[in-house]
Amino acid sequence: MSEHQHGSGRCLELAERLSEFVDGELPEPLRIEIEQHNDECTKCKKFVESLRRVRDLAHLLPRPELAQERLRRISEAARRRLES
């Protein structure tokens, strides 16, 4: 049996759907096809893993925060504009 060569047309076609794959949003037949494809194509499998890590990086970002006093002042200004 010949070893799968990464970079085939199917690798590129499936690459367009990989975010949906990591989010669990694909129809069953395509999800199964990608799982089977990744069993044969190590590079596509690693690509999926890296995409999943990128998705999870969102939780690493600290939220920029506004000082409470500044938040209060802006809210008060908005309240005054609403009441005027």
């Binding site: 690459a15 596509c44 690693k46 690509f47 890296s50 990128v54 990086l57």
Partner: peptide
């Protein structure tokens, strides 16, 4: 464009390492 984002010259397995 998808073409500029899909892995080209760099090896496919590269990606960020998690902390």
């Amino acid at each position: 464009s998808l073409e500029e984002l899909l892995p080209g010259s760099e090896p496919l397995e590269e990606g960020p390492v998690m902390p």
